[in-house]
């Protein structure tokens, strides 16, 4: 098994995990974290697939794309957290189960 496949498979796994978390977890912060998981998975896939040429070395284009993506992820995370916080102060809820989760939801 070549090295690039390890990274790529890890990325695919992270992406699938993130998909599950985003859909299944009612807690809003879990959803933000899951979106981050998905982003990291995409980055790993891009970096892994960019390293498939033993003779010419890693491809710089996916690296630049990942660098771009990291900044966009930071923006997404900050905006997501701000919206979650605003939602919490407006409704007192931190999840989509329509009840305050006082330690019950894990």
């Amino acid at each position: 098994m070549s090295t690039y496949l390890v990274y790529t498979a890890g990325g695919v796994l992270l992406y699938a995990l993130g998909t599950y978390g985003l859909l299944a977890r009612p807690h809003l912060i879990h959803k933000v974290i899951s979106a981050n998981f998905m982003g990291s998975g995409v980055f790993l896939i891009l970096i892994g697939l960019g390293n498939r040429s033993p003779e010419s070395g890693p491809d710089p284009v996916p690296q630049a794309m990942v660098l771009t993506g990291i900044v966009v992820t930071v923006a997404l995370t900050a905006l997501g957290l701000a919206i979650v916080k605003r939602y919490y102060t407006a409704t007192g809820l931190d999840n989509l189960d329509d009840k305050p989760s006082a330690g019950g939801d894990r």
Partner: peptide
């Protein structure tokens, strides 16, 4: 991902 060829020249050069 598995369907991709294991080596690709990419744009490095």
């Amino acid at each position: 991902v598995l369907a991709l060829p294991p080596t690709a020249s990419g744009l490095a050069v």
